[in-house]
Simulated scan of single mutants.
Amino acid sequence: MIFIDPPFWPAHGTVFSHLISDTSIAELHAFAAANGVTGRAFDLDHYDVPERIYAELVAAGARPLSGKDLARTLVASGLRIKAKYRVKSVGSVLELRWNALVPDQPELGADLLARWNEPHRHYHSATHLLAVLEALDLLTERNVPGQVALAAWFHDAVYNGSVTDEEDSAILAQACLNGLLPAPQVAEVTRLVRLTATHSPAPSDGAGHILCDADLAILGSAPGEYSRYAAAVRKDFAHIPDEQFHQGRAAALKQLLALDPLFRTVRGRELWAGQAQANLSGELARLGHNLAAADGTLTP
């Protein structure tokens, strides 16, 4: 169902309401598009709509709620984006994390953040980087090996929706870290970055297990968050026609479902394995069972 709170929030010479769904972001987008709400008004989990169209949206089916009740409804739906995952907050949090990890290289950290915030990124963005770093904290009880943390920072630092992204990111890591770290540590960081192309670490590769599980943690997220992830991945590959994307995406989902186990750490399996199976299977079913096999070049 679609909900709207009273026009109250001042900006641009008027006041604004918030428009939300308690079901899905897809439902919210569909309602907004059907009622002339511009896409520029979307802010991650809601639309900001001006007072002049409030009555029209209510007449179209948006249910009025108080501001407090609307916020509660959004939180209860599981679609709420936490404040720290909004762009300005993400940048501040990541800057603090980088300075704690590599305190004498603020320029390198700023360059990496600029890469993660490139405008063509949707899923593979700074928000993903923060989510990976937080997943590493969960998997290690906040005792993340430094080389694993650096690999997380570099693993999608180059992102063009290409099969060479991980290799290009590894090359960037080597170029940036040569001279800053001993050669064996640089080699380990670049090895781990390359590993995120396949998410298939060797049985004895403890560092690889942690990084791959953290990178794939989104697969085990709540359904609403997973839906946003899938939609953002489609935007990342907007240059690919629908049929080709669906084929490639289905192949990628099948590859993930074939990983045994999908999560290599005990903690990762406890946190994410069950929901990941449901999410991946559900998305594959929605894509259809009769898609032709693709080459699997789309990455999760």
Rank of each mutant, 00 (worst) to 15 (best):
residue 10 P to H: 07
residue 93 V to G: 00
residue 112 L to Y: 07
residue 48 D to G: 14
residue 6 P to I: 04
residue 76 A to P: 08
residue 135 A to Y: 02
residue 93 V to W: 00
residue 248 G to N: 10
residue 70 L to I: 08
residue 164 T to L: 11
residue 98 W to A: 00
residue 10 P to M: 07
residue 172 L to A: 04
residue 178 N to E: 13
residue 88 K to D: 12
residue 109 G to H: 07
residue 6 P to G: 06
residue 288 G to P: 04
residue 157 A to F: 02
residue 39 G to E: 12
residue 89 S to C: 07
residue 42 F to T: 02
residue 268 G to P: 03
residue 40 R to S: 12
residue 124 H to N: 12
residue 256 L to T: 03
residue 136 L to H: 02
residue 177 L to H: 01
residue 164 T to Y: 03
residue 218 I to G: 01
residue 109 G to W: 05
residue 255 Q to M: 15
residue 145 P to M: 11
residue 250 A to L: 07
residue 118 E to V: 09
residue 66 S to H: 09
residue 133 L to G: 01
residue 60 A to Y: 10
residue 272 W to H: 07
residue 128 H to D: 04
residue 95 E to F: 04
residue 131 A to I: 03
residue 133 L to R: 11
residue 214 A to V: 01
residue 163 V to T: 15
residue 184 P to E: 09
residue 150 L to R: 04
residue 203 P to D: 07
residue 90 V to H: 00
residue 218 I to A: 13
residue 213 D to I: 08
residue 154 F to E: 05
residue 149 A to R: 05
residue 294 A to C: 06
residue 141 E to D: 15
residue 227 S to L: 06
residue 141 E to T: 15
residue 3 F to Y: 15
residue 44 L to F: 07
residue 114 A to S: 14
residue 69 D to L: 15
residue 192 L to T: 03
residue 300 P to C: 12
residue 186 V to N: 06
residue 64 P to T: 07
residue 82 K to W: 11
residue 134 E to P: 01
residue 226 Y to H: 13
residue 217 A to R: 00
residue 141 E to R: 13
residue 17 S to K: 07
residue 65 L to R: 10
residue 293 A to S: 15
residue 39 G to H: 14
residue 111 D to V: 10
residue 291 L to A: 10
residue 24 S to E: 10
residue 286 R to S: 13
residue 72 R to C: 06
residue 249 R to K: 06
residue 10 P to V: 06
residue 86 R to F: 10
residue 28 L to S: 02
residue 205 D to L: 08
residue 4 I to F: 08
residue 203 P to E: 10
residue 270 E to V: 13
residue 178 N to F: 07
residue 120 H to M: 04
residue 73 T to C: 13
residue 23 T to K: 06
residue 161 G to H: 12
residue 267 R to M: 13
residue 194 R to Y: 05
residue 161 G to Y: 10
residue 143 N to E: 15
residue 42 F to H: 14
residue 9 W to M: 12
residue 146 G to F: 10
residue 209 H to P: 05
residue 120 H to C: 03
residue 23 T to D: 12
residue 268 G to L: 04
residue 293 A to I: 14
residue 80 R to L: 03
residue 17 S to Q: 11
residue 120 H to R: 11
residue 226 Y to G: 00
residue 79 L to E: 00
residue 257 L to N: 03
residue 181 L to C: 05
residue 11 A to I: 01
residue 65 L to F: 01
residue 274 G to F: 02
residue 176 C to Q: 15
residue 260 D to R: 14
residue 288 G to Q: 05
residue 1 M to H: 06
residue 97 R to S: 08
residue 184 P to K: 05
residue 131 A to C: 12
residue 20 I to H: 03
residue 208 G to P: 02
residue 64 P to E: 09
residue 98 W to R: 02
residue 14 T to Q: 14
residue 205 D to E: 14
residue 296 G to Y: 02
residue 46 H to S: 14
residue 26 A to F: 08
